[in-house]
């Protein structure tokens, strides 16, 4: 195990009590458990408070655009399959602005882990409803209640047979760390939706609210049973399951493309003799 100090300690821009602090701790724990040195890890992120997380961790980081954590993460993961790649962002970035990339990533199934800080609200822009805000929940910007139905990332991921689908809670750091480590070890695209209170802008989904409802999935849930997983993915309200919802063995993207193109692209050089041969085909 790599000592936790290796992953650094930084001052953050997060509110005291924010769930992000706990998620960061769990990420470091998971990396340590996985024995991943910082230079072998890439965190890609979008924009938002959650997306700042890679700045508070010693690792390689690509902090890109709002909604666009997944495309660069997949591009880098394919350019160098020896990197362990994570994308990390909030619910607005991941399921709203980046919704199409989420759907495509589920289809593509590149080996990487997607950590979504899901606080059911926009924090950095100060309290608008997010794609996962409950329908009818009042915000400063939706005073009559959020009009749209919330997005269900787990059900969408399970419906696409994403190989690893989990939900965790920022209030359960060890449980979360374990899930992140499991997700990173699993071949293919792994989604970890992390419930996280926003202490400044979400007065509904508080620590107490989550603690009352979240329960850990036990031995009675078989994550390889797709129908059982779909039922658990739908469960959100009085009781919220946390743990590995679904685990499958869909072949990752990397196994379905020409193996000759999968090598660290940084060290590949063009074979000009081969190119000359190809040009002969145009003569």
């Amino acid at each position: 195990m790599i000592p936790l100090e290796q992953y650094g300690e930084f001052e953050t821009a997060w509110c005291p009590g924010c769930g992000n602090h706990a998620i960061l701790k769990a990420v470091k724990k998971a990396l340590s458990t996985l024995d991943l040195p910082p230079h072998k890890v890439l965190f890609a992120s979008g924009i938002g408070q959650a997306a700042k997380a890679p700045h508070y961790l010693r690792c390689n980081a690509f902090n890109g655009l709002h909604g666009r954590s997944l495309p660069p993460a997949q591009g880098a993961a394919l350019a160098n399959t020896e990197l362990t790649v994570f994308a990390e962002s909030g619910d607005g970035c991941s399921y709203g602005e980046g919704g199409n990339h989420f759907l495509a990533a589920l289809r593509r199934n590149v080996t990487m882990t997607y950590l979504v800080h899901d606080n059911q609200i926009y924090g950095l822009t100060k309290g608008q409803a997010s794609p996962t805000t409950a329908q009818g929940q009042k915000t400063k910007f939706q005073p009559d209640g959020a009009p749209s139905m919330p997005f269900n990332p787990l059900a969408v991921a399970v419906s696409m047979n994403a190989p690893f689908v989990a939900r965790a809670f920022a209030g359960e750091i060890d449980h979360l760390a374990d899930i992140i480590a499991q997700a990173a070890r699993h071949p293919g695209f792994a989604l970890v939706d992390i419930l996280q209170p926003c202490v400044s802008f979400n007065k509904v989904n508080t620590y107490a609210w989550y603690r009352e409802r979240c329960y850990k999935l036990g031995a009675d849930h078989n994550p390889t049973d797709w129908e059982a997983a779909m039922r658990k993915a739908q469960e959100f309200g009085d009781r919220i399951p946390i743990g590995v919802i679904y685990k499958g063995d869909r072949a990752p993207f990397e196994t379905r493309i020409n193996p000759a193109v999968l090598r660290p692209l940084a060290t590949s050089r063009p074979d000009l003799a081969r190119l000359g041969g190809l040009l002969q085909g145009y003569a």
Binding site: G64, P71, Q74, G75, A79, N80, P264, A266, T267
Partner: peptide
Amino acid sequence: NMALGASYAGAR
């Protein structure tokens, strides 16, 4: 954005 991620990781 995918191209930028790949370029960052050393692809042309």
